[in-house]
C-alpha cells in the first residue's frame, strides 16, 4: 500500500498502482493498457481519489486489483450501467469503465448501445482480444471468421461484430481504436477520450499470446497505421464509417475515427446543474407542497 495516500502532486504513473502485481500472462496486452491508463491519468493530473473505475468480468476485470483509485468491480457485461450510476451520482468524478469484447459486445451489448446513445460523460475502454481468455479460449463476438476456438473447433462461423461501426451507428460522439502495442499512442487516446465532453469509446486491439496467438504483436504491427499520421481528420461520420469497414486482416487504423461536440446526458437533468447529487442536503427537503395534488 502507498504509505501516504494523500500525495496529490506531482502525480506519477505508479501512484495509480495498487500493491498487487498483475496476474496476467506474460506478454498480455492488458499490461500495456494498464500502463497507458496510469500514464494518461498522471498526464491529466487526476488524483486517484477523484477517479472512479468500473470493471466487468474477464481478464480485463481483474484489473480492479491492480489499480489505485475508487474501484467498482461489477458483473459480467455490467461495467457500463454501474459507471453510468456512479457518474450520475457524482458527476464531479472522472469515470472510466473497462471490459472485454465478451463483456461489451455479448453479455452487455444492450448497455453498450444505450450508453453510447446517451452520451453520458464517461470513457469506455474495451480490451478487445477477440477471444474469451479468462475462461480459457472460447469464441467471442469479435472472433475472426474461421478462427479456431474451444467452442468452434472447426473455426468461428458467425460474422464478427464490428465495434467501431456499431459505435458510429449508435451515434457515438467519440469513437476511437487503440493498439496495446503502442503505449504512448494509447495513452494519448485515453487522455483525449477522458477530456472529451461526452461518451468516449475506445476499442483497444489487445494481443492474447496464450489463447489467440495468431493475432500476435507482430501480426498487428504489420497492419496497424496511425490515422493522424495519414492526415485523417475525425470530423466526418461517413468517412469514419469507411475506415471502420476496413477488414482487420488487411489494414488496421488506430486513432480517433470520429469526434463531435453534442449535448451530453447530464445536460438533460437540470437537477445536476448546480451541484452533484451526492452533495444534496437530505435534511432540507420540503415535500409538503407536493401534498396539494392529493387534497
Amino acid at each position: 500500500m502507498i504509505s501516504n495516500p494523500n500525495i496529490v502532486n506531482p502525480l506519477k504513473p505508479e501512484d495509480y498502482s495498487s500493491e498487487v502485481f498483475p496476474t496476467w500472462c506474460p506478454g498480455c496486452g492488458n499490461f500495456a493498457i494498464w500502463a497507458a491508463l496510469k500514464n494518461a491519468l498522471s498526464e491529466l493530473k487526476l488524483p486517484p481519489h477523484r477517479v472512479a473505475l468500473s470493471f466487468g468480468i474477464g481478464c480485463s476485470g481483474n484489473f480492479n486489483n491492480f489499480v489505485r483509485a475508487n474501484v467498482f468491480h461489477s458483473l459480467h457485461g455490467r461495467a457500463l450501467p454501474a459507471a453510468m450510476g456512479i457518474k450520475l451520482g457524482n458527476h464531479e468524478l472522472t469515470v472510466i469503465a473497462m471490459g472485454g469484447d465478451g463483456d461489451g459486445f455479448a453479455e452487455g451489448l444492450g448497455h453498450t448501445l444505450e450508453t453510447i446513445r446517451s452520451n453520458v460523460n464517461l470513457t469506455y475502454i474495451v480490451h478487445d482480444n477477440h477471444m474469451y481468455s479468462l475462461t480459457t479460449g472460447q469464441t467471442s463476438p469479435t472472433t475472426a471468421l474461421g478462427a479456431k476456438t474451444k467452442t468452434a473447433p472447426l473455426g468461428a462461423y458467425e460474422y464478427p461484430l464490428n465495434p467501431l461501426a456499431l459505435a458510429l451507428s449508435a451515434g457515438g460522439s467519440f469513437v476511437a481504436r487503440g493498439f496495446a502495442g503502442d503505449i504512448p499512442h494509447l495513452q494519448s487516446l485515453i487522455a483525449e477520450g477522458v477530456s472529451h465532453r461526452g461518451f468516449s469509446f475506445i476499442d483497444v486491439m489487445q494481443p492474447c499470446p496464450t489463447f489467440n496467438p495468431e493475432m500476435s504483436y507482430d501480426w498487428y504491427r504489420g497492419r496497424v497505421y496511425r490515422l493522424d499520421e495519414a492526415g485523417y481528420v475525425p470530423d466526418n461520420r461517413f468517412r469514419a464509417w469507411e475506415v471502420a469497414q476496413a477488414p482487420l486482416d488487411k489494414k488496421i487504423a488506430i486513432g480517433v475515427l470520429y469526434k463531435e461536440d453534442r449535448s451530453i446526458l447530464e445536460d438533460n437533468f437540470p437537477e445536476l446543474s448546480k451541484t452533484p447529487l451526492v452533495k444534496r442536503d437530505l435534511n432540507k427537503l420540503d415535500i409538503r407542497p407536493l401534498f396539494d395534488n392529493f387534497k
Partner: peptide, 22 residues
C-alpha cells in the same frame, strides 16, 4: 429510464457506491 432492468439495478448500485440514495 434505462434500457432494461439489468441496467436499472446495476446503475442504482453504481449510484449507491457513489454515495447517494438510489
Amino acid at each position: 429510464q434505462p434500457e432494461d432492468e439489468i441496467s436499472v439495478l446495476s446503475s442504482a448500485i453504481g449510484s449507491g457506491f457513489a454515495g447517494i440514495r438510489a
